[in-house]
Amino acid sequence: MRNFEYQKADSVNAAVTAHAGQASSFVAGGTTLLDLVKIDIMQPERVVDVNGLPLYDVEALDDGRLKIGAMVSNTDLAYHPTVVEKYAVLSEALLSGASTSLRNKATTGGNVMQRVRCPYFRDGVSACNKREPGSGCAAIGGHNRSVHAVLGTSEQCIATHPSDMCVAMAAIGAKVLVTGPNGEREIDFLDFHLLPGDSPEKEHALDVDELITHVVLDAPIEGSRSTYLKLRDRASYQFALASSGVIVATEGNTIRDARIALGGVGTKPWRAREAEQALIGEPATEQSFKKAAEIAFKGATPYEHNAFKIPLGQQAIVRSLTHATAARA
């Protein structure tokens, strides 16, 4: 691992001040940063430790929203009583990600900042516009089965965003609170992660030196139920091939409101708004779910090895909607 300076910050402002430009990285859990620094893909000259910041609370706001400190671990968030009770999709998504020990380290802010698993990004030498803008995208025409997208891709990059947590947050709706040299601002969660477009090296809406301090979840949809379904090869400890986080509210058998977000298939945590719209007012039947699933993948672009993700993602949607609307004993 390359040599870097280390500074531990004791306040958000001190962290932002210590973070000095592109050559700096914040470290929270470290599960992404150290992985990539060891293989020389991330090359920080200075690492600012944010573990000492007072961002460990999960706070119910008066308006019904839930404010989550950036340092709350994936484990703590997954088992937080409010999350378990009101945001099942988030709890389940968190628990489907990584492993027990990684979830204990990984933080809310860090998970939002996860980097892609594309092997061509990680190998340090293949063409990768994310790592070396302008070099090309070796994943196109290469091995692109597991961690490559069919939605939101561009000719410059097709890597999936690997997070499960973010899929749930995309479904719920959230704001990302950030602090930078110019003070605080909030970014809509759906605007936080950027499509690769022509500049896949720009992955998120943070400015240099900005730090995520909180994620504020929208209030739960009244009377809704939610769930997360992750499909993969082995039964655990694998990034999603396709996943679906859904929130559904029904009146009788009619769908009053619906949210669908997808993982493993998009270049960012993918909100399927058109599919949601197609569900509202429809009966909660397999036929409606299938129709919505089809709409969700309208315009999807399959690559050499990942065309199966389109039907697989559709299956994830249908099954998760079925679970979320099933009669309960």
Binding site: Y6, T31, D35, S101, L102
Partner: peptide, 27 residues
């Protein structure tokens, strides 16, 4: 593996199990 992919390095920190390969000692 040195990359958080196997769990062989798991230890307890303040009663919680973590992958020690993905944590800086200074932290």
């Amino acid at each position: 593996c040195d990359h958080g992919q196997c769990g062989a390095c798991n230890v307890h920190v303040n009663g919680t199990v973590i992958n020690s390969c993905l944590s800086l000692a200074v932290m």
